[in-house]
């Protein structure tokens, strides 16, 4: 018996360490490539470096947010083919932004400093998202596909409502929110970087501290309750973190629907671990690596900076269909 247990323990103990170390090296390499590749000498060297560092930070931030939020969300939803975006999280954020600008007016709200505006937006987002999606997921657990479909349609509803408000409101106000409605890795919102970075760091740390509870949550509701997990509280807390992270990535680059799917799929596949202590850092590293590497490839090598988000979405969608056909929806 003892043999069987150690056998089980050995790959689980060693493999993740190597995988995480490898991923960290890869990220470091890609980041170095991003920073110094093709960097000329001369007077504007410092300026270019600063520009690149800003973008690197933004890409890393979004990659980590998407990775960690997707893995967390998939655990809460007990489903490996979902992302917060598919379920309408980012659409809710865009709607919220639009509604705030529309109702509070361009002078009052949009006139606030970007940081204060962002912080109040994400505070509201956490409240709304955890209430709405918490209800949906706690109530909908009996019929998971219906819950997914509800989320997808809610996303459409939020997007339509945001579009409606955008059309109805003042064009000057609309321009304020329009930038946030489409994904772009080129037009990064740099003013938000420090505060977004701080929020991401806190949320990721909080998620990592929850990892043991997330492990139990992954066993399903009945088992988690039987093991004494405060199921509802953990679900709400996890969804709040997801809402935070989605707000950050949506505010910085805009909505990315399927990217998280690839990241979470890779994190599960590479680590082959069910431990969130391993999965969450792996997902963060993978997300950042793909975004930085992808942007480097598309922007510097292919000269088609605009298309990375489209390609990522395409690949993510295909991956989703593949998972669906392989019967991994459950």
């Amino acid at each position: 018996m003892a043999e069987a247990l150690t056998l089980a323990a050995r790959p689980a103990a060693l493999r993740p360490v190597w995988v995480l170390a490898g991923l960290a090296c890869l990220l470091a390499a890609v980041s170095a490539l991003w920073m110094w590749q093709g960097l000329g000498g001369g007077g504007n060297r410092g300026f270019v470096l600063g520009l690149r560092a800003n973008k690197l930070a933004a890409l890393a931030l979004v990659g980590v947010s998407v990775g960690v939020s997707t893995v967390t969300f998939q655990t809460v939803a007990a489903n490996r083919v979902l992302t917060p975006s598919i379920m309408g999280f980012d659409a809710l954020y865009v709607l919220l932004q639009t509604a705030l600008v529309a109702s509070l007016g361009i002078a009052g709200f949009a006139g606030l400093p970007a940081t204060a505006k962002f912080l109040s937006e994400i505070a509201l987002m956490v409240l709304l998202a955890s209430a709405l999606f918490g209800t949906l997921m706690l109530q909908g657990a009996r019929d998971i596909p219906r819950m997914i479909l509800t989320g997808v349609i809610l996303g459409v509803l939020f997007r339509s409502l945001a579009g409606f408000m955008g059309r109805v409101m003042d064009p000057a106000q609309y321009a304020v929110v329009q930038a946030a409605s489409f994904a772009s890795f080129n037009r990064v919102n740099a003013t938000l970087l420090p505060v977004a970075g701080a929020v991401t760091l806190l949320a990721v740390l909080a998620a990592w501290r929850m990892s043991a509870r997330l492990d139990v949550l992954a066993l399903g509701r009945d088992a988690a309750v039987s093991l004494g997990l405060r199921h509802q509280a953990v679900v709400i807390a996890a969804l709040s973190l997801v809402a935070l992270l989605v707000s950050v990535s949506t505010a910085v680059v805009g909505p990315v629907a399927f990217f998280g799917l690839i990241v979470a799929g890779l994190a599960h596949g590479l680590t082959r671990s069910a431990s969130h202590g391993v999965l969450l850092p792996a997902a963060g590293l993978i997300g950042a690596t793909i975004l930085i590497g992808g942007q480097w490839l598309f922007e510097r090598q292919l000269g088609q900076a605009a298309t990375l988000s489209v390609v990522v979405e395409f690949a993510g969608g295909l991956f989703f269909l593949y998972l669906l056909l392989k019967g991994r929806i459950r």
């Binding site: 596909p145 997914i148 479909l149 390609v311 929806i329």
Partner: peptide, 25 residues
């Protein structure tokens, strides 16, 4: 799995749609 059908349809629409966007771009 009745509800999977619409989900697959929505995703497929998204995939074909992203091809359209890519080409159009």
């Amino acid at each position: 799995e009745v509800m999977l059908v619409p989900i697959a349809g929505i995703i497929l629409s998204g995939v074909v749609g992203s091809v359209v966007t890519f080409v159009a771009w």
